[in-house]
């Protein structure tokens, strides 16, 4: 008989339930190297079709299955079952409005992303071919472009929990910095203007939860520090 994995999964259907509750499931260990997403899929396909969660790529690329796993944010699809304490507590991303079960409302998160204008802004005339960038300048985007906007960092940030309506949060700020360091972007000044705010940027208290939560091992804290230094050097 296959080894059994015990899970305790957050359930809430606002149309039926008054209150959220944790439901226990038992899933066989299907293969070595099995990921948490495989267990959730097994529950959905074989045990309980009502369990609701987001997932798409299944390999850590789309960023849709950010969850709180045993108290730590991460992507279900790349989190190995092995090494997780059982029963595995699976909850939606913290501080988020739950739509159903493990599905949370990401609208505000993406609104904040839109606020940093995540696209190239340039005044100089369009070159005939592509906008060139030296390998060194391209290298400066390493550590930022890999972000898949899963929200694991932002929803683990205590400052964002208390002031998420105004503080942009680590994910959006990492991307703000990504455009500030991009050699092809010509809106650095306006970008900095838009960040210089006691709440939007400076609400980060360097707690570094974001860095620990990031499944892509990116470092939003360092990016925030870089924006601060940019602002400082502009003024001094």
């Amino acid at each position: 008989m296959a080894e059994i994995i015990k899970l305790s999964v957050f359930r809430f259907d606002p149309e039926k339930d008054d209150k959220p509750f944790m439901q226990t499931y038992e899933v066989p260990l299907l293969k070595s190297g099995m990921k948490l997403l495989d267990a959730l899929n097994y529950i959905k396909w074989e045990i309980d079709g009502t369990l609701t969660y987001r997932r798409s790529c299944g390999e850590g690329v789309c960023g849709s299955d950010g969850l709180n796993i045993n108290g730590v944010n991460g992507l279900a699809c790349i989190t190995p079952i092995e090494g997780l304490k059982q029963p595995i507590h699976v909850r939606p991303l913290p501080s988020m409005h739950v739509i159903r079960d493990l599905v949370v409302d990401m609208d505000h998160f993406f609104d904040q992303y839109r606020q940093i204008k995540p696209w190239l802004q340039s005044e100089s005339p369009m070159p005939e071919h592509e906008r060139l960038q030296s390998p060194e300048d391209r290298e400066r985007l390493d550590g930022s472009y890999e972000c898949i906007l899963c929200g694991c960092c932002t929803t683990s940030c205590p400052s964002w929990w208390w002031n998420g309506d105004r503080f942009l949060g680590p994910a959006a700020l990492l991307q703000a910095n990504r455009w500030i360091v991009d050699s092809r972007d010509e809106a650095t000044g306006e970008r900095l203007d838009q960040l210089e705010d006691a709440f939007r940027l400076y609400r980060c208290h360097q707690i570094m939860n974001c860095m620990e939560a990031c499944p892509k091992e990116l470092n939003p804290t360092a990016a925030i520090g870089h924006i601060r230094r940019k602002l400082l050097s502009r003024k001094s």
């Binding site: 210089e196 705010d197 400076y202």
Partner: peptide, 8 residues
Amino acid sequence: AAHSGLSD
């Protein structure tokens, strides 16, 4: 932005 965070 309020343009005042840096000085604080």
